[in-house]
Simulated assay, not measured.
Amino acid sequence: MTPPMFFSRAVDGTPHDGGDTFLSRLREPGDVALLVVFDTWVRNWDRFFDGEDNADNLLYVKAAGRRKYDLVPIDHSSCFIGNDVDFPTGPAPEAWVLDPNVYGKFPAFDPYIDAKSVKRAVERLSQLERDFVVEVVNSIPAQWGFGPNAALSLVDLICGRAEYVVNTISGRLVDEPEIPGLVK
């Protein structure tokens, strides 16, 4: 039996080149911080982690009718559990929830990550609602054999990981994160 597969629409894009050829022409430069916060939340080691670069997992797509580009991440197959083979039926390992590593942060991204864009990304992640996560996890096809215990563990991992990243990522991405109520 072939397991269900999911695909997204095809886009005509150019892979990340390691430099700022396309970064300097982004329509939304703040999307760089959004991507790094997202990749860190989902522990996406398959894009960029610990010096290992998989530029094919990041595309720059020309914005319609413009001379600017959009950042389009692709391939999220290595999320949350990393390269571990099986998801546990009990609670996810604490090391997964409290993983302090930053993922998806290509060296060329550094000049594009600032306190304002990190704050925006963290605010978006902080809006993740457990009920929504439960709904998404419950939509996993039965053919995958992902039982109720594993589903609950995945929900706890996704939500716990989001809370951890929201509370810790700013200081790991910017030297001077914005402090609410403090005016510079």
Rank of each mutant, 00 (worst) to 15 (best):
P3C: 03
F6H: 13
F7E: 13
S8Q: 13
V11A: 05
D12G: 10
D12V: 13
T14L: 14
T14Q: 14
G18W: 06
D20C: 10
D20P: 03
D20F: 01
T21D: 15
L23V: 10
L23N: 06
L23K: 04
S24I: 03
R25P: 00
E28W: 11
P29K: 00
L35E: 02
T40I: 05
V42F: 02
N44Q: 12
W45M: 08
D46V: 10
F49M: 11
D50S: 12
N54Q: 04
D56L: 14
L58M: 07
L58K: 08
Y60I: 03
V61L: 05
A63I: 00
R66E: 01
K68T: 15
K68I: 10
Y69P: 01
Y69F: 11
L71K: 07
I74S: 12
S78W: 05
S78C: 12
C79G: 04
I81T: 04
G82R: 02
G82I: 05
G82V: 14
N83V: 02
N83M: 04
F87R: 06
T89L: 03
G90K: 09
W96N: 00
W96V: 01
V97H: 04
P100W: 13
K105H: 01
P107A: 05
A108N: 12
D110E: 14
D114M: 03
D114T: 02
K116S: 09
S117K: 04
V118H: 07
K119F: 05
R124L: 02
L125S: 06
L125Y: 02
L125N: 07
S126Q: 06
S126V: 06
R130V: 00
F132G: 11
V134N: 08
E135T: 15
I140H: 05
P141D: 15
A142T: 02
G145Q: 05
N149L: 03
A150W: 01
L152I: 10
S153T: 08
S153C: 08
V155G: 09
V155H: 13
D156R: 15
D156C: 13
L157Y: 07
R161D: 02
E163K: 15
E163R: 14
V165Y: 05
V165P: 10
V166L: 05
N167Q: 11
I169T: 06
I169D: 01
R172E: 11
D175V: 15
E176A: 12
E176C: 00
